[in-house]
């Protein structure tokens, strides 16, 4: 038992749980400090539009939202926590009938699909190009790509998105931006059909392309510098001296070792996949979690906001833990816990 408590994994997990709890609590209170109470807005609406009395409206809203604005904040908090333990994220304050959990499950796949795909493409491509840049350092590819990567790395993703829409879409009419908005085309039956999958890819193209452009520069530059330092290691010279073919050298010796420091970054990026990019999804009207979050914020939909924040926090924490474990798995020095041999 003591061994368990002291073990690295256990401590990491406990730390993660505490982080999640802290995020939950923080968002819960922060949101309630924000001006503009949605229940109050609804109550006012009932009073104005339907001519209800203040009390009537208040009762109506309380039953409707399963949320009593007069309840002390602390009691609300306790209710919230006890519901959470039962995986009940509450009901949305604005679209009353849907539980928040259901809503999240509806939007999450879109985000996972688009941002995940983008991350996969950006990482693999970035690593390969970065490796090549370092390997043929000072060559044409290196020079061109270094400039390219630095430039796009410096541009924020929403600017890239706007440029895509304005330049490629509106002015040059290269991309039928209007057709590509949304998650899928109305009328195409969802399912494992070629038509549907192609349609999904078509609609995901703009956000994915934006994400890839926005992040690939970072991967290329990091991989390049990591590869350069790996190439300077003695064991590379020694492996060359052993007459290893370049291909084996490039994969098992240079590539693998240079990728090690990037794996942590990758795992952390995976954590942020869930949050997606609120602005990008909004710009392209992509039905993901990020756009939903923006909508919820606009409507002061506390419960939805809390739910989404919670999911984002959990995914970041979990991927951090995964990053730790992954690094340990890839690097035997960490895995086996240090030096057994002494000098």
């Amino acid at each position: 038992m003591r061994k368990l408590i002291r073990s690295y994994t256990f401590r990491t997990v406990v730390q993660g749980l505490i982080t999640i709890w802290a995020v939950m609590t923080f968002t819960f209170f922060l949101i309630r400090l924000m001006p503009g109470n949605p229940a109050q807005i609804k109550i006012d609406e009932y009073v104005d539009r339907y001519g209800m009395s203040e009390d009537q409206a208040r009762q109506q809203v309380a039953t409707l939202f399963n949320y009593d604005p007069d309840q002390p904040v602390f009691e609300q908090y306790v209710d919230y926590l006890s519901d959470l333990v039962r995986f009940d994220l509450g009901r949305s304050l604005t679209s009353t009938e849907t539980p928040v959990a259901e809503q999240i499950l509806r939007f999450l796949p879109w985000t996972l699909f688009s941002v995940g795909l983008a991350l996969l493409v950006a990482f693999s491509l970035g690593v390969l190009v970065g490796l090549a840049m370092a390997y043929w350092r000072g060559g044409l590819l290196d020079n061109v790509m270094t400039v390219f990567a630095s430039v796009i790395y410096a541009i924020p993703d929403y600017i890239i998105a706007l440029l895509l829409i304005m330049v490629a879409g509106v002015q040059l009419k290269l991309i039928p931006v209007g057709e590509l908005y949304g998650g899928s085309t109305q009328g195409i039956e969802p399912g494992f059909t070629v038509e549907y999958i192609l349609d999904l890819l078509k609609h995901a193209f703009l956000p994915v392309f934006t994400y890839v452009l926005a992040t690939i520069g970072g991967w290329m530059l990091t991989m390049k510098s990591s590869t350069i330092s790996t190439l300077g290691e003695d064991y590379i010279t020694v492996a060359r001296a052993r007459g290893l073919p370049e291909r084996r050298l490039l994969t098992a010796y240079v590539g693998r070792n240079a990728m090690l420091p990037l794996m942590t970054r990758l795992a952390i990026s995976i954590g942020f996949v869930v949050g997606g990019s609120a602005i990008i999804e909004t710009l392209f009207l992509y039905p993901g979690l990020g756009r939903n979050l923006v909508l919820a914020i606009g409507l002061r939909d506390y419960t939805t906001m809390q739910g989404i924040f919670l999911v984002i926090a959990i995914s970041v924490v979990v991927s951090n833990i995964l990053a730790d474990l992954l690094y340990g798995w890839l690097d035997p020095r960490v895995r086996l816990g240090g030096d057994k041999g002494t000098e």
Partner: peptide
Amino acid sequence: FLWNECSMVFQGALNSLNPVL
């Protein structure tokens, strides 16, 4: 030619070995 005919032992034994293999 390398290693078949002429091999090398370098200084600094730790750095001469790939740490992940």
